[in-house]
Nucleic acid binder design. Structure first.
Lengths: 319, 319
DNA sequence: TCACTCGCTGCTCATATGAGCAGAGCCTGC
DNA sequence: GCAGGCTCTGCTCATATGAGCAGCGAGTGA
């Protein structure tokens, strides 16, 4: 393009977006028709000369959202902007998840939720009255064997209270010593009823755990660091609902899985609404595993994780 | 403002500016009227949530331009964006000055120009055919006593040639030894004719020099470093057309001024169009002196110089 | 408890802008 | 040199948006 056209592009953009002149007025100033001005402005936007940015803690990244949804066949994706502060990013992600849940239509009658730090943050971020009468069911076992902030039942209770509803908790250890023990406990009438409610929930909200010593499963005493190291050796990239998966979303230790209490992962794959809230650099790999293996229909994440998922998927497709 | 209002602001802005939805469509999505959407968007722009920036080498800074024009009663101001590269800023300033001159209406019949590195850059940046038949007059003496790139006459000749016109040069030393010598030379018929043309020019284009050893007047051999040191002691902040001025735009050495060849500064003050092109950190003080003492009607500068001028003027007014 | 004021809303009508089309001009190839 | 095709333009008509106004609701004060 000739230099004088560049100049006209820039001037038109400045007069329109900074001086708030109409296209008619700009046409008079630049001695071209208003139709030409319109084309110049469209070109300026197309070429990135005009840069429009939404700057706010609740802003999202629409382009990455669309790319994720299209690439993985997701019903929706929510991507929050990256900052240098991991805690700010985690908070923004939790807030975005809470926003999404509150805006979800139809509002789920029964919501299955996992427990952990991320979902607890989502619970804190939810506004009072986000729903009117919702049953919130805890979908994975979580009777804390050590005393920490992430109280499994508290998360479900908070979400239910803020939604003017009731909570059904699973005050059972997340992982038991023997498969038979799990089967007996899950067969118990009240436990079976809770698991039935979990299985028939209209929507799920969960996060994923990192396969490292920082996991709440280790912190809660269900697994040792050595356990996790072995799981990683077997290919584990993280856990969903306490169940360790590899990069392809497959269970890495069938025996451990058989001792794990709560909803099975196959149910997430068949659920019409499964919201995964997964952000932070440590969770890049498990986030990728979740979206690429159909474990969620909606992903709430941060910009850096979204980019990592899209980049790695591209590499895998060209391999 | 309530948190839910913030969220609605952000969503509306994202849907409008990033997803290109109409206000009607956004209203349906957010369950409000299109008039409410319009108000939300206006608020988002007002509060800076929507940030629109023009990114291009020829972009300008409209807000600073208006502030300079309003504060100093300038007919116009042109401010180019700051970058970290002083040479890029100088180039952008020269290009902006060339753009401005080429767009000036009516096109001046006679243009008085100074000589120096900055105006030579403007000459290089001018497009061929920027005018059709213009007389370009050199307004300050400039017969180079040493051989350097900034050839005084060449600048006026380049501008004239690109404008399809003719040049009238002043091949006389910028500063003479004695006032009487200057008077004799200026009385010479051909020199007097050139000065008369300079005095009756319809517009002027000039830059300012820094009062330091890097000045083209020192480089050209008219002054020594000691001369300049003395001038600075007397309060000089820089020179305009070879004439040293202080922070208030007043001549600091009347004797030196009497020996200086060319247009007097008073003529710049009465000219309807006097374009000063002054950018770079070293020229902040002389730029301020020029605009605050009515030596120009139009200033072409960079963002940093503009901010410095506005800041210092504010301090002086509150003193 | 009532009245008044202020702020926010929805609406009408005018203005601003865009989509699509037809025509013109320019460039390339035969 | 002519013809055809492509690109860019101005325009018409439809759509999108804004300005200003009237009405309603909420809050405050007497």
């Amino acid at each position: 393009m000739a230099a004088t056209d560049d100049l006209m592009l820039v001037r038109a953009a400045e007069l329109y977006y900074e001086d708030n002149k109409t296209q008619d007025e700009i046409g008079a100033l630049l001695r071209v028709t208003r139709w030409k001005v319109g084309r110049l402005l469209a070109q300026a936007r197309d070429e990135g000369i005009v840069r429009i940015e939404i700057v706010h803690p609740r802003a999202r990244r629409a382009i990455l959202e669309r790319q994720l949804a299209d690439r993985f066949g997701l019903a929706d994706a929510v991507v929050v902007p990256q900052t240098d502060d991991p805690q700010a990013v985690a908070a923004a992600t939790a807030t975005a998840a809470a926003d999404y849940l509150a805006a979800l239509r139809p509002i789920p009658r029964t919501l299955g939720v996992s427990w952990g730090r991320t979902i607890d943050s989502v619970a804190q971020a939810l506004p009072d009255g986000w729903a009117s009468g919702v049953t919130v069911v805890q979908v994975n076992g979580g009777l804390s064997l050590s005393r920490r902030g992430s109280d499994a039942a508290a998360t479900a209770v908070t979400i239910a209270q803020k939604g003017g509803g009731t909570a059904i908790t699973l005050p059972i250890p997340a992982i038991l010593e023997r498969r038979e023990t799990r089967e007996v406990i899950e067969a118990d009438r009240t436990v079976a009823a809770a698991l039935a409610r979990a299985d028939s929930a209209s929507a799920y909200l969960y996060s994923a755990g990192v396969a490292d010593a920082d996991s709440v499963l280790v912190e809660s005493g269900y697994l040792t660091k050595d356990d996790v190291t072995q799981l990683v050796r077997k290919g584990a990239v993280g856990d969903v609902l306490g169940r360790y998966i590899d990069a392809f979303g497959a269970i890495v230790d069938v025996g451990l899985d058989a001792r794990t209490v709560g909803l099975g992962l196959d149910r997430l794959r068949t659920a019409p609404t499964a919201i995964a809230v997964i952000a932070g650099e440590a969770k890049h790999r498990v986030a990728h595993a979740v979206v690429s293996s159909g474990l969620c229909t909606i992903l709430v994440t941060d910009e850096s994780t979204a980019q990592s998922i899209l980049r790695h998927h591209q590499i895998e497709e060209s391999a």
